[in-house]
Design a binder for these strands. Structure first.
Length: 563
RNA sequence: UGGGGUGUGGCCAAGUGGUUAAGGCACAGGGUUUUGAUCCCUGCACUCCCAGGUUCGAAUCCUGGCACCCCAGCCA
């Protein structure tokens, strides 16, 4: 059973081969986020990949913060990342790891490179370094500091560490090949000087910080990682990853494997851009329900199971593509359809008076909580002579394609009676403000003989029993499927393509009373409309619901087609 | 000829020289239905970026093109 559910992809094939050949007998992976922002759906793909492999192969996956740049990192991000990984349902081995835990060892390995003549302290300025590096097509040239003696380099590096030099005045570089076709091998930087910033883990203990290309392979090796999985843009760094491990005294040599990062339609998945959306106020925060962050989709009502399923469905390859929103949304709907209890809510109310129903009478109609699953039980919904229906569920006249309430015609109220519309009340502007209808007695659960045939089924809420609520109708954040590409092409910026209608706030909604006691995060299906969750930030007073995703709406298509 | 990658239906993706090129999403048609939802059928690549070649046999091997992505942070 688990065999057929096991995802298969080129990385798992490599692992299978390594296990079969005896290269490894235990698998270890790692998820190495930099705590400089919130995690997004693209990270979910990496998390599902790395932690999923650990689970399926009974190995381990370390959560490791890649925290070598104190300028951009902080504890808020550390905490958020931990929460997001946990929310997705994954467990890291023993404890969270930090690259900063290895600063001592990293320094020792760097010193080892210096002593073996494979690294040197360079005093070129940033601009000079760039010039010396050459270009994509032209080789670089050696730094004048390249042939310093080992003794001098040891001395200089120690003094760098001791804080004797200013920021930017010196760096430690690997001595590889300034003419290498791969620019990453042209004497890459290993350490830089950073005074004055407190690191969230190590405080002011260090004034030199190792670069990613040096830190990453060493951290992986120290943790005994077998497969170091990263995204495609690091492919060019693999020779350097290998060079580092081949030139220091460490046994373990993990295999770096690259896969393509996730691209999703109608959104952006880059930390820089997401940070900009937050800092420039285009959204309300990292957890704005329109954001593709884990925090955002969580608040939007997505579930961990749906996210993991999505990650499985998109697969893992080296080819770059853009996944359609429809795939994400459908994965969610599939789960919510099975798990969300049904309720009725009128979002844009139109009052309807039932003229032949006794004014003081209230009856409780029985409504199943899930039409396909009796174990969800039933609830009682109060019905009386005054109800609200959805404004768009009434038209004075319509062709037979319109299966809702029409003047003079009949419709069924969900789980209740058949009604027939007799009269339309309008205000001075000609706006419909009230409907007057007759109900067919004895039509609950059946259609009595002689009763008018209902055109369809519409939802409703009792005027006297309904509760007021705010409902936030969220839509895609961007109006263009690929905001980045569009901005590039048209000489604009990606924020020019934000969807102005990504949030429609409905404040006059009426919910059935069964929705009075709900807790943050709970998800319901509002029948005929979609899935809605209780907003996590509004736990008191009038309930606030976020629309997670609409129901599939084929009517919207036909209505548009036929007018 | 800077280097490194990728090209299978609208989207994602199996496929690793040998039956009619999996599957999911999307789309189209039909059935069930007190949610225009769900569910259930049916259809949807004589062809795998292109052109040659090897082979009894090629999406898979070879050669040559083409297209697209990534790389010149003291970011990761």
């Amino acid at each position: 059973m688990s065999e057929s559910n096991m995802p298969t992809n080129f990385i798992r094939q490599i692992i299978d081969e390594d296990l079969a050949s005896g290269k490894h007998d235990k698998i270890a992976t790692r998820f190495p986020p930099e705590p400089n922002g919130y995690l997004h759906i693209g990270h979910a793909k990496a998390i599902a990949l790395n932690f999923g492999i650990a689970e399926d192969y009974q190995g381990r996956c370390n959560l490791r913060f890649d925290d070598t740049n104190p300028h951009k990192e902080n504890m808020e991000f550390v905490a958020a990342i931990e929460e997001d990984v946990r929310w997705l349902g994954y467990q890291w081995a023993d404890k969270p790891y930090y690259a900063s835990n290895y600063f001592d060892k990293l320094y020792a390995f760097a010193l080892e490179l210096v002593k073996s003549g494979k690294a040197y302290v360079c005093e070129l300025s940033a601009d000079e370094t760039r010039e010396y590096r050459g270009s994509l097509k032209q080789p670089g040239k050696d730094s004048p500091f390249r042939k310093r003696s080992v003794e001098e380099n040891v001395d200089q590096f120690e003094r760098m560490k001791n804080g004797e030099f200013e920021d930017g005045s010196k760096v430690l570089r690997a001595k590889i090949d300034m003419a290498a076709a791969n620019i990453n091998m042209r004497d890459p930087m290993l350490y830089r000087i950073r005074h004055g910033v407190a690191h969230h883990q190590t405080g002011k203990a260090w004034c030199i910080y190792p670069m990613y290309d040096f830190t990453h392979p060493v951290s992986d090796a120290l943790e005994g990682i077998t497969h170091s999985i990263c995204t495609l843009e690091f492919e060019d760094h693999r020779p350097l990853y290998d060079w580092v491990l081949d030139n220091i005294s460490i046994e373990c040599h993990p295999q770096q494997i690259e896969f393509s990062r996730l691209n999703l339609e109608y959104t952006v998945l880059s930390k820089r851009k997401l940070t900009q959306l937050v800092s420039e106020g285009f959204v309300e925060g990292w957890d704005d329900p329109r954001m593709p962050t884990i925090a955002g989709i969580r608040r939007r009502g997505y579930t961990p199971a749906a996210m993991r399923e999505f990650c499985q469905r998109i697969g893992v390859t080296k080819s770059e593509g853009t996944v359609e929103m429809a795939l994400l949304e459908n994965t969610l709907r599939e789960e919510l359809n099975v798990n969300a209890p049904r309720r009725m809510a009128v979002l844009e109310p139109l009052k309807l008076v039932i003229t032949n129903y006794p004014a003081g009478q209230v009856e409780e109609v029985v409504s199943p909580n899930h039409p396909q699953n009796e174990s969800f039980g039933v609830r009682k919904t109060p019905f009386c002579n005054e109800i609200y229906i959805e404004q768009e569920d009434f038209r004075e006249e319509a062709n037979k394609k319109y299966k809702r309430l029409v003047m003079g015609k009949a419709v069924r109220l969900r789980n209740a009676y058949i009604i027939q519309c007799d009269e339309v009340v309008k205000d001075t502007n000609g706006e419909v403000i009230e409907l007057r209808c007759r109900y067919v007695p004895d039509s609950i659960g059946q259609t009595p003989e002689g009763a008018p045939k209902p055109r369809g089924v519409i939802h409703w809420v009792s005027v006297r029993h309904g509760i007021n609520a705010e409902v936030r109708m969220y839509d895609r954040l961007f109006a263009h499927p690929s905001p980045d590409a569009a901005a590039n092409k048209e000489g604009k910026v990606f924020t020019d393509f934000l969807n102005p209608n990504s949030l429609r706030n409905l404040t006059r909604c009426v919910l059935e009373p069964a929705l009075a006691q709900v807790s943050p995060g709970e998800v319901f299906q509002f029948e005929r409309q979609g899935y809605f969750c209780v907003d996590a930030h509004h736990t008191h007073g009038q309930p606030v619901f976020n629309r997670t995703v609409s129901l599939r709406d084929t009517w919207a298509k036909t209505d548009k087609k036929h007018g």
